[in-house]
Nucleic acid binder design. Structure first.
Lengths: 242, 242
DNA sequence: ATGATATTTTTGTGATCACATAATTTTCGC
DNA sequence: GCGAAAATTATGTGATCACAAAAATATCAT
């Protein structure tokens, strides 16, 4: 049975640490839930409904929803209803291309600033991904994978494309999670090792190739999901994924 | 004499049409003023100050500032003060590279959808740019130029990179305007004609080249401004623009 | 029964207030 | 005079209320 209103969702609740302001807590909570695909696309998210569910005043929810709309994570319709946008084949394709475009660029820009400590950190993160894969912990595979990419690109102290990249992740994330949840076995060629080797060799070309391959692998695994077409808006089957 | 508080700024006031909601009016007003470089970088923008200046309640201003922060147009400091970010040489360089990366991609994606009507529209916009150049109307040169690019990229009905591109414009805009205001004579090689010709020939290569050249021309004209180095944070002179 | 209309409820927006915290000014010791 | 500390002011955040518009529900004519 499909959930009909917010009360039927089981939101992941992150505990609210003392220092964290309410608005940020709500924002990160909603963001995480969106990235995990916990919220059904098309279903309206209401300020008061979420406020009640999270036991906060409507104000921080209002702020968080506006920010998420600005980042493309949710869509404000003409009737001012807020929903998780449906995915279309074309949008999916374009978002993937944007990921490759922006992230290969960001990786290249980070390369000159990579030091030994960055490589150590990346290897540590990669180990945590392997661990998450072993536990078949789909949510953390995705979250830690993002941490890997973010850490790499952040090596560049003059980095400014990360917000753009995160916006693309947010638009792609909910759909990916829904699709991947269907995967029985998760098999990932470890492109991260290739990327780390490219960093050690300081090879721009190898680095770009590793990042692009990593992204394309993810896309391929999504495309491999049985019955994936049903998740695209208005395409229950038969349309090519391009 | 530098303005010390908001009251000393002369904000461009757009008239508020009946249909426009207050929050959107405030957002667009602030956005336009930022793009025109009307607001001194580094000076704190306060919710109550702007609300009083615009004669609205603090609420819509609060919303607009949050959105602009999300788009990178303003920066929220640790002390929760909101300012127009300073430009640095490295940031400027990176923003320009991002423009080229995203916009050549967007142009290429639009090409297959270009019809005669699009070309007509683009020519009309280009004529308005020429007119603005003749009038030495710097603000409109910039605004109409953006309209040209937006119109081109929007031909692709599955376009999703425009919000990302607009975010880059917003981060680049204030600085560009401040710099360009110093230019005695505005001379622009009309790369738009080259772009339109590329569209007619349906040449991806020529189109990408025209868009990149258009962007690089703009950068070059900014770099040509006498004493431009003084506008970069902490670099009164001598640092290369790369 | 059914489709149009009227009523009720829900929702987003804007306004105002309380409160904690950051910035500013004043006070005070020396 | 001058710097540290205290008092004051300004500011962002969160909460609550009023209001108009939209959605959902109820009513009614046929």
């Amino acid at each position: 049975m499909k959930p009909k209103n917010l009360a039927d969702f089981e939101l992941l609740i992150l505990e609210k640490s003392e220092a964290l302001k309410t608005n940020q807590w709500v924002y990160q909570l909603l963001r995480t839930n969106l990235l995990c695909g916990k919220i059904e696309p098309g279903l309206p998210l209401t300020i008061r409904g979420l406020a009640k569910a999270l036991n906060v005043s409507p104000m921080p929810v209002r702020e968080a929803l506006h920010r998420l709309a600005c980042e493309g994570a949710v869509e404000v319709k003409n009737n001012r209803r807020v929903i998780v946008p449906q995915m279309t084949v074309e949008k999916f394709h374009e978002l993937c291309e944007l990921r490759i475009l922006l992230e290969t660029h960001a990786a290249e820009g980070a390369l000159p600033y990579i030091r030994e400590q960055h490589i150590t950190k990346l290897q540590e993160i990669d180990a945590r991904i392997d661990s998450a894969i072993e536990r078949v912990d789909r949510v953390n595979i995705s979250l830690i994978n993002q941490e890997f990419h973010r850490t790499l690109y952040s090596a560049n102290p003059f980095q400014i494309s990360i917000p753009l990249i995160e916006s693309v992740w947010l638009q792609l994330g909910p759909f990916s999670q829904i699709a991947i949840a269907k995967l029985e076995k998760i098999y990932i060629v470890d492109r991260h090792v290739e990327a780390i080797n490219a960093l050690k060799q300081r090879s721009t070309f190898a680095l770009r190739r590793a990042i692009e391959a990593d992204i394309r692998d993810g896309i391929a695994s999504i495309k491999s999901v049985e019955g994936i077409h049903g998740y695209f808006e208005g395409n229950t089957h038969a349309q090519s994924l391009g």
